[in-house]
């Protein structure tokens, strides 16, 4: 830690206000270039505490930067994680108001719900597969609070890894009935295929992403409780959207999921 609690609190208020007021800010490392990873997560957890104090329920956890190519590009060896809020839930098949966001982008993912607690260190794919209750098709709506997406990774972590909204599809499956690495995903925007990929784009296996989450949380002395909803990370690149755009995503073995921005 390089920052004291007062500055952490001040930054949490600053970044959360950007979200609440939909007003983009410059990246916080401009003012605090020496901020370290612990500081960044401390800001994120302070934002989380502010929301919980206001009555917001934490709906789950999310992984970000789960592609090996993106990690290499950003010069880091670990993905990042954040939390999901109850008010971030958006209806499948419904309309999503653009004015909830600053400059949203969508990425296709698979999500899981756990039935047992997961704790690290040493959490692995086997433990995760044993702990997954169901696998669901999902979309994350990310919305960086930083102007023009100009940020570094520590600023992103402080900004709850750009988490803003999510949509979950209705068709779930047991993990043993799916081959998650080869699970294909095809994303269409306004009837045209814009992105496609397979589950292995997420750290080789979406379950490996959950294991990594458990291990990263263990470093903070925390575990993932049973019943946690987890977005495992983008299978596709994030696609920019605007009002009027219709997104439809097909998941191998997990049906389809669609919604419209208005």
């Amino acid at each position: 830690m390089t920052l004291d609690q007062a500055i952490i609190e001040k930054l949490a208020e600053h970044v959360e206000n950007a979200e609440l007021n939909r007003a983009a800010i410059v990246k916080i490392t401009d003012e605090y270039p020496d901020m370290d990873w612990e500081d960044a997560y401390a800001v994120q957890y302070a934002i989380r505490a502010r929301k919980e104090a206001r009555g917001t329920k934490i709906a789950g956890l999310k992984m970000g930067l789960t592609s090996h190519a993106k990690m290499k590009q950003m010069g880091v060896e670990q993905p990042v994680y954040g939390f999901l809020t109850d008010y971030g839930a958006c209806p499948e098949g419904g309309e999503i108001a653009m004015d909830r966001f600053i400059h949203p982008r969508v990425e296709a993912e698979v999500a899981v719900v756990t039935k047992r607690p997961l704790s690290g260190p040493g959490c692995h794919v086997g433990a995760v597969l044993a702990a997954i209750d169901i696998v669901l098709p999902a979309v994350e709506i990310i919305d960086s609070r930083y102007k023009d997406f100009k940020f570094d990774l520590k600023s992103v972590v402080a900004d709850n890894t750009s988490a803003a909204g999510y949509v979950v599809g209705g068709r779930s499956a047991r993990p043993e009935d799916l081959d998650m690495p080869t699970l294909g995903v095809v994303m269409e925007k306004n009837g045209e295929i814009v992105e496609l990929g397979a589950g292995a784009a997420v750290l080789g296996h979406p379950a490996a992403s959950v294991a990594m989450l458990a291990n990263m949380m263990a470093a903070r002395g925390e575990e993932i409780p049973a019943g946690t909803f987890i977005m495992t990370g983008g299978i596709t690149a994030a696609v920019a959207v605007e009002a009027g755009d219709h997104i439809n995503i097909r998941y191998q073995g997990l049906g389809t999921l669609g919604f419209r921005f208005v």
């Binding site: 090996h68 294909g184 095809v186 990929g197 589950g199 292995a200 097909r250 998941y251």
Partner: peptide, 21 residues
């Protein structure tokens, strides 16, 4: 259309895709 594909070269995942490509 939705079947996913994973390509590995020398043990490293180098690409993923799906039938619709």
């Amino acid at each position: 259309a939705t079947c996913g594909m994973v390509l590995e070269k020398n043990g490293e995942i180098v690409a993923t895709g799906a039938g619709a490509a």
